[in-house]
Amino acid sequence: MVTITKDTIIGDILDIAPETAPAFLEIGMHCLGCPASRNETVEQACQVHDESVDDLVKKLNELIEANRK
């Protein structure tokens, strides 16, 4: 199983777990297809969008785990 951290690249997350896209969209990260955003870490994106990196990392890992069962 893959574990997402604050240093994981958003593009990598979307490639291995596309079901996580709604979690990014919910917090205002609407340009997921943009080359710049796909190369950001989760932490960098959360800083730009003034969101909690810990909360998003937790949610992403929960989504991935739920979809692997």
Rank of each mutant, 00 (worst) to 15 (best):
L56K: 03
C31Y: 01
K69H: 10
D15F: 07
D7W: 06
M29E: 08
T8F: 10
Q44F: 11
I13S: 03
I16M: 13
S52I: 02
S37T: 14
E65N: 08
F24A: 01
I64G: 09
E26I: 01
H30T: 14
T41W: 08
N39E: 13
G11A: 08
E62K: 11
T41M: 07
N61S: 09
M1Y: 12
I16T: 15
T20F: 09
G28D: 02
T3V: 13
D50K: 15
T41A: 11
K59W: 01
R68N: 14
R68M: 13
P22R: 12
I64V: 11
D54K: 10
C34N: 07
N67V: 04
H30M: 12
A23P: 05
D55P: 00
T5V: 11
E26N: 12
E19V: 13
D50T: 06
T5A: 11
L14Q: 02
D55R: 12
A21N: 05
D15I: 02
L32V: 00
M29W: 09
I4T: 07
K69W: 00
A36N: 04
I10C: 04
L25N: 08
S52K: 05
C31H: 03
M1D: 06
P35C: 02
V57E: 13
M29L: 13
G28P: 00
L56W: 02
Q47F: 07
E26D: 15
S37K: 05
E40I: 03
L56M: 06
I13N: 04
V42Y: 03
H49K: 10
I13W: 00
Q47V: 09
E43R: 07
I13V: 15
V2I: 14
A45Q: 10
Q44L: 04
I16N: 14
H30V: 12
E40R: 11
D7N: 14
P35R: 07
K58H: 15
P22M: 08
T8S: 15
V57I: 10
L25G: 02
I27M: 15
D55G: 08
P18F: 04
A23E: 15
F24S: 04
Q47L: 12
T8N: 09
I64T: 03
T5E: 04
E43T: 00
D15N: 15
K69E: 15
T41F: 12
A66P: 05
A23Q: 09
C34S: 09
G33F: 02
L14D: 04
D12R: 14
V57M: 12
N61K: 05
P18E: 07
A23V: 12
I9M: 11
E65S: 05
E51C: 15
N39D: 00
M29I: 14
I9F: 03
V57L: 03
E62T: 12
L25P: 00
C46Y: 12
G11Q: 01
D7Q: 15
D15Q: 13
D15G: 02
I16A: 15
V57T: 13
E43S: 14
V2E: 10
S52T: 08
I10Q: 06
N39I: 00
S52R: 09
N67P: 09
A17M: 08
V57N: 12
T20R: 11
A21H: 03
I4M: 03
